[in-house]
Structure formats: structure tokens, C-alpha cells
Amino acid sequence: MITFLELLVNGISIGAVYALIALGFVVIFKATEVVNFAHASLLLAGGYVVARLHPHVGFWLALLIGVAAAALIGALVEFLIIRRSKASSHGVLAIVTIGVDIVLTTELTRQIGAEVLAMGDPWESGVLHIGGVTIAETRIVALVTATVLIAAFLLAFKFTGWGVAMRATAEDPETAALMGVRLGRVSLSAWAVAGALAAVAALFLCVFPTPGLDRSSSLAALKAFPAAILGGLDSTTGALVGGLIVGVTEALMTGYQDDLSFLGRGIGDVAPFLVMIVILLLRPAGLFGTKELARV
């Protein structure tokens, strides 16, 4: 029972981090109808900046710069690539983002090499004991941070002029433009917000119990894809629920790996994708989505 609770809390925590990534993915899709396959590389870039800078400027400033850098890279991808190719179809743009991903990831993995870079976070390997349940401090911080960021995002999405403009653009860009909404700014801000959220997620994917940022760190980010897709690509609620489903499934499958050995080794890593496939078979648009991926 204790094991189960520990796994569940860890799963929810990592799920909240996946939700941060998936949320950015969904925001980009809503604002521009582009499936951003470069998302994992934005995340890796943000994490890389934090890892490289913290020995020089301290953790908090490094984090701030890492978040800003990922936001900037996201904005640059939008401004230099997505915006210039307005004429092409969304399917073509999705393939363009695969190219961006390959370029960014290749360069970053070359820079990282065989190293494992510490993130320099103040929580290190501290653990908390709550009624017999042992949880890493990083997991608690991740959960709280992700919850606060997601809540702030949803409130802004619901109540600010930016959020209303974003939702209107997602619904009908032509009419939004007739309202005076600057579509370019909406799209730019979506990419920047997504980059910033991904950088925060990068931090929590690379802290304890993970040894640090290495060249495979972007693989962890890939689990946010099934999270976004199973929740529904155009649904913010879907991103949150999808993130939690993937996080909890992964944690439980990994935790009970030995009891599940008939399913093969590494079931925790493939489980999110299996869950996604099952859900898409039952609901092609995802749990909360309205658009099928086939339309993209």
C-alpha cells in the first residue's frame, strides 16, 4: 500500500510535468494548427541553458535565463520558419518542425556529448517522509510548480484579452483578424509560452532521481506527445488529464515491473504509447478533443 501511494504521488508529479509540456504543445496547435514536433528540442535547449549556466550565475538566474531562452527559441522558430511558410499546409509545417527538431537536437547532443550535466537545483536528493510515505523533495516542488503554472495559464487563457484572442483565433482566425486581433502576435506568443513551459519541465525531468541532463533527456519529453494526443490535441483540459494518465501509468508500470515481467522489460516506457493507442482507437479525437489528428 505504501509502495502504491509512493508510486501514485510520483506518477502524479511527473504527470504534472508532462502536462506542462503537453499544454505548450496544445497551445501551439490551437493558435496555429501546427503539430510541433520540435517541442522536445525546445525543452532540451531550455534544460541545456540551465545546466550550463548555473555554475556561473547561480541556479535561480540560470533557470530564468533558460526559460527565457526556450521562449525565445520558440518565438524564433515561429517568426523565421512557420510565419514565412504561411502558404503551405499544416501537414507540411508539421514536417518542417521535424526538420527543426533534428537540427536543434543534433547540435545540442553534440554539445552535451557523453556528459551528464547537473541542474544545480537547491533540492538535490532530499526526501520527505509523510506518514510512512517517502517522496523526493524535487517531486513535491515539481507538483506544486506545475500546478501553479497550469492554474496561472488557465486563468490567463480564460480571463485576459490575450486568452480571449487566442481562443478566438483557434476557433476562426479570419474572423479574429476582422476583430483587429494580430494573428502574428497570437502565434508568436503561443510558441514563446510553449517554449517557456517546456524549459520548466526540462528542469524537473532532469533533477533527482534522474542523474541530470544528458543527450537522451529529450526522449523523456517525447512522452508528452501521447499525453497531448490522448487528451485531444486541441484541448487544454485534455493536456492536463493526458499528462496525469501518462505519468501515473508510467510510474505504476515501472514500479510493478517485476510483477508485470510477462509484459517484457521496460514496460514503463512503452505504456504511455500503448494507452494512447487504445484511447485513439476508441476516441479518434482524444478524450477531450474535437479534431482528429488525421485532419492535420
Binding site: 480571449v164 484572442a165 481562443r167 478566438a168 479574429a176 476583430m179 483587429g180 486581433v181
Partner: peptide, 10 residues
């Protein structure tokens, strides 16, 4: 929200 959007052109 629709009405608020109308004001964005101002």
C-alpha cells in the same frame, strides 16, 4: 467574450 473581442480593434 464575443463582445469584448469586438473592442480589440479600438
Amino acid at each position: 467574450e464575443n463582445l469584448r473581442l469586438g473592442a480589440m480593434a479600438r
